Simulated assay, not measured.
Amino acid sequence: MTRNLSGLLAPAAAVLLVAVVVAAVAGAWPPFVAVESGSMAPEVERGDLVIVTSTDRFPWGGLVGAAEPGAPTRFGSAGDVVVFDPPSDGQKPILHRIAFPVSAGEDWTDRADPALLDGDCATIAGCPAPYDGYITYGDANGEYDQSAGIAPIVREDWITAKALFAVPNLGWVRVGVDAAIARVGLLPTAVGFGGLAAATGGVGALLFGRIAARRTVRDDRER
């Protein structure tokens, strides 16, 4: 019974170990985020799992906007893609691209792309900039977050991680977990998904074991 229990729990433990190792390398926890909107399409689609790192983690340290010289290319365009969490009630973290930094009191529309603006500094709530921060946008949105009212100017301390690459469709698992936690709570979700992972791993181990056993018997007969 102890051996069977260990075999069932091994896959879940392996998944947790991989997550811990990735987090240690990335310097962020959790080391991935699930994408729930299409605002960064086509490079990042709904249901993708995005691997992230700490913003100061070598060799990906620092934050570089799309308009800055020598900006790195990430997800098909220039500039870092970051996860930021505005302190607004009920708003989820946002995965968008940095356009450029701004300083307190600046009329940042002078440096903005007119195609991504809806109005001028007199009509945009975050202009002049009330504090130092960043202008951001979703690649598929066609307008700065601060112009569209999606988010205020993003303070640096709101930015929790920098995106490195995306794994297509793998994020649906994370979305499902988050939905289950919101519905039934953390503990029942952990027990349920842990049991499912263990059972799936146990069934897989059993099937592979039977295949290996049959192959051994067949080899013995052939000898």
Rank of each mutant, 00 (worst) to 15 (best):
A19L: 13
L164H: 08
F165L: 14
Y134G: 10
V81R: 02
E68C: 03
L116N: 11
D110V: 15
D157N: 13
V184R: 01
V52G: 06
A71N: 08
L116Q: 05
V191M: 07
G38V: 00
A161L: 13
A140R: 04
R174G: 12
G47K: 10
D120K: 02
P87S: 15
R155C: 08
V20F: 15
V35P: 00
A182M: 09
D48L: 06
L117Q: 07
R155H: 12
G76T: 08
W60F: 11
P188V: 01
D48S: 06
G47S: 12
S147F: 09
F75V: 03
L206P: 05
G119F: 07
A190S: 12
L207H: 03
G79C: 02
T53Y: 02
G7Y: 04
P93G: 06
T2M: 13
L207W: 09
V50E: 07
V22E: 04
K162E: 00
G149K: 10
G201S: 05
D132F: 05
V44Y: 07
V25C: 14
L196Q: 03
T136G: 11
P31V: 11
R214C: 05
T136M: 13
G7K: 08
D139T: 05
A198V: 09
A12K: 06
S54D: 15
V25E: 03
V167W: 15
V175G: 12
P30D: 09
D145Q: 01
D118M: 14
R174L: 15
A26F: 01
H96L: 08
